[in-house]
């Protein structure tokens, strides 16, 4: 799975779970950590959905380091590579 395919899947999960993002253009520079309604519970929920979608586990201590969509994709790529 290449980065674009990962991105497509992640963006869909974010849009499906966060109405605030539904009509927004999301690119790799989009900061996902300051959205008012992306609180810690929603973040955990979205992370669980992402982990399930890619069958990976990203250590919880890494979660807060993901500021932008690009950060998130980097972590997912790392976790997928580790799985192989």
């Amino acid at each position: 799975m290449d980065r674009n395919q990962i991105k497509e899947k992640v963006v869909k999960i974010i849009k499906d779970n966060l109405p605030e993002f539904a009509d927004k253009e999301i690119d790799e520079t989009t900061r996902i950590n300051t959205e008012a309604n992306f609180d810690s519970m929603t973040f955990v929920y979205v992370m669980c959905k992402i982990e399930a979608a890619f069958d990976i586990k990203i250590p919880e201590r890494r979660w807060d380091k993901m500021k932008t969509l690009a950060d998130m994709l980097n972590e997912i790529e790392k976790a997928i590579a580790k799985k192989k």
Binding site: N33, T34, A36, S40
Partner: peptide
């Protein structure tokens, strides 16, 4: 402010 948010925990971030 956006950059300042990077050093804050999720619940503390300044949303506007």
């Amino acid at each position: 402010v956006e950059r300042y948010n990077d050093g804050l925990s999720r619940g503390q971030k300044i949303v506007s």
